[in-house]
Amino acid sequence: MSTFSVNLSIPFPSGREAEIAYQVLRVDREPSRGSIAKSLTLDNNLLQISISGTEARKVRVALTSFFDSLILVTETIQLFGPPVPTYNYY
């Protein structure tokens, strides 16, 4: 069976903003029935996302839902930022 995958590298104005997006988005797991593998990594001010699965439709849905969430995080940072440099409550 072939695998469909999407890999994106999303730039942020600062490393801290990329880190916030990374920390906020990494918590929720993909629904298990989706048979989708999602991985998020942080590289300085770049948020890297890789989504793969065997059904193209499910990969697209996962990507759309990732962007819905990402946009909400960036809008929140724009409205309520700038963020403090560190988070102490992990």
Binding site: I20, S69, T76
Partner: peptide
């Protein structure tokens, strides 16, 4: 409902990070 719950959790986590607050 899963999807609506996720929205408020996402915002809570984001503002917690921006202001360094416990959640």
């Amino acid at each position: 409902m899963g999807a609506p719950l996720t929205v408020t959790a996402l915002i809570a986590r984001t503002v917690a990070q921006i202001y360094n607050k416990p959640i």
